[in-house]
Amino acid sequence: MRLWVFQILNGLTMGSLLFFVAAGLSVVFGLMRILNLSHGAIFLFGGFVGLAVQKATGSFWLAIPAAMLAAGILGFIIQKVFSTTLMGSRFNQVLLTLGLAFIFNNSILAIWGGAPQTIPAPEILATSVKVLGVTYPAYRLFLIVLAFVAGIGLWFFWERSRLGAIVRACVDDRDMATAMGIRVEIVFATVFTLGAAIAGMAGVLGAPVLGVSIGLDFDVLLLALVVMVVGGVGSLSGAFVASLMVGLVDTFGKALFPELSYFTLFSPVIIILIVRPLGLFGRIPPE
């Protein structure tokens, strides 16, 4: 029983981190039909910037805005420089952002080296708490709570605010939104930048759990892609539910069948996508 509670909490922690990465990826895709395969590299870039800031200042809480700023700027530059190609054929976007992913990955290796590192959890959270009969790191619980708070916050922004309505309008019908006088390209630039900033934040938030290391970018990207297509592209609630699902399945697969862990994660995913190509909550065909 204890083991189960422990694993469920681990799965939720992983799912929470995935939500931050996948939300940006999914909304950008829903909005502009742009698949950004360099999203994982932006996540890792945020992690390393956060690490550098944390080392320099000793403050975890300062590392987060710094990473968000750096990742946001990177995202802004990407969409600014490559806007023509990004707006072009889907095939070219995929290749371009895949190329960028390789370039960022290798640049990170050149700047920070290949040794896996970690950011220590902030002192106030560096303890353990008793939950449901198990002792669990407070920092991980904080992540789970944060994801739920952020999920609810984003939901309100998405469903209730004026800006959210504008973004949703652009997702649903870009031409009509343009006709209504919405500056779609500005909405797009904003969302792309914000998505990158949130991915950068996730890089720092995830560092005490996952560490920061070369290769993590592609692992996280793959999981985020899975979350996005399972949840349904462009759907925030889909991304939330799918993140937790993928986090749980991944954790349990690794714990129960370590030799088959990739199999246990991806086989259900392949089946879900074949049965329901739109994903669980999707309305847009991800083509």
Binding site: F29, L35, R90, V94, L222, L225, V226, V229, V233, L260, S261, Y262, F263, F266, S267, V269, I270, L273, I274, P277, P285, P286, E287
Partner: peptide
């Protein structure tokens, strides 16, 4: 499936064999 879903499925399939 096509496009992005196809890309993800093939990627996932490749990772299953690699895993």
């Amino acid at each position: 499936v096509r496009g992005l879903t196809f890309l993800t499925i093939t990627l996932a399939f490749g990772q299953v064999t690699w895993g």
